[in-house]
């Protein structure tokens, strides 16, 4: 077991002195991940009910998901329809939250510390307020404008919670960016808008891409606002799953969850990749 005496740090700590730390860390990571991963084996179960560990294996729940029919009598469109609604809303959220959040970040980083100190907390307040309050507020607000159960309402609601995240990501990118470059570009003959698009944007593009992915994920994973302001044919997949779980324990949920986990962690991985790139 000589490898236990290998040095693992600059200060010549040996592997065996650090072993407890590594084991502890692995345990913590394991506990963080496992609850979400349990659904994966469950989704391949052949049984009528959710069970763990599964006694028999089949793909029937994937079949039930991908080839669902629309008269399920549960108050939402079929599973695939709900999935498409979610994707549509998430993509539209990107196009609303990212530009607004980016403009807000640009504005904040160009204003004085005092203005920033007042505006920043207001702009990120949707993150600080319990989301259920936001959802209730949106519901009553949308009722006035007949926007309940509409895609527009959903997109606006999701953009509200995604925008603060975009703001924070882009703001931190702009903090490392030298605004003098835009000044130079303007002195050389570029309008302010052109200077932003040709000089600033290319240098914060990886953060913007990260912000887009986060906007998508925020909307795609969101349940509470969806529960309040979406319904019928415009149900999102998360809302549909919630309703299905309430009425009956249907292992289709496990299959759907598995697909969602793959999509979400894939996007998260992408975000990491872009986040690591130096802007």
């Amino acid at each position: 077991m000589s490898f236990l005496n290998r040095n693992v740090s600059e200060t010549q700590i040996r592997l065996k002195d650090r072993l407890w730390l590594y084991i502890f860390s692995i345990l913590v990571l394991f506990l963080l991940i496992v609850p979400s991963l349990v659904v994966i084996p469950m989704s391949f179960s052949g049984s009528q009910y959710l069970e763990f560990p599964p006694k028999s294996f089949s793909l029937r729940w994937y079949e039930a998901y991908f080839f669902s029919s629309s008269d399920n009598g549960m108050g939402f469109n079929d599973w695939m329809g709900a999935t498409w609604t979610s994707i549509k809303v998430a993509v539209l959220t990107i196009f609303v939250a990212t530009p607004i959040g980016t403009m807000a970040a640009y504005g904040l980083s160009n204003s004085s510390a005092r203005v920033r100190g007042i505006l920043f907390p207001i702009m990120i307040s949707p993150m600080a307020v319990p989301i259920i309050l936001v959802a209730i507020g949106l519901f009553y607000f949308f009722v006035q404008f007949k926007m309940v159960n509409s895609i527009t309402g959903l997109v606006l609601g999701h953009s509200l919670v995604a925008m603060p995240l975009v703001l924070i990501i882009v703001l931190s990118a702009l903090r490392n960016y030298d605004m003098n470059q835009e000044k130079v570009a303007r002195s050389l003959g570029a309008s302010r808008l052109r200077a932003f698009f040709e000089i600033t944007l290319p240098q914060i593009k990886f953060s913007i891409i990260s912000a887009c992915l986060i906007s998508f994920l925020t909307s795609f994973d969101e349940v509470i606002i969806s529960l309040f302001v979406s319904g019928g044919d415009n149900s999102t997949i998360t809302r549909a799953m919630f309703l299905a779980l309430r009425d009956q324990i249907d292992p289709t949920i496990a299959a759907i969850s598995t697909v969602l986990i793959i999509i979400s962690s894939g996007l998260l991985l992408l975000t990491q990749l872009f986040g690591d790139k130096k802007d």
């Binding site: 000044k183 130079v184 002195s187 050389l188």
Partner: peptide, 18 residues
């Protein structure tokens, strides 16, 4: 506005476009 003034300008930290 600055971009219509047609002046050349050199800043202290150069501010080249990376």
């Amino acid at each position: 506005p600055p971009h219509l003034r047609d002046i050349g300008m050199v800043f202290q930290n150069y501010a080249l476009f990376p």
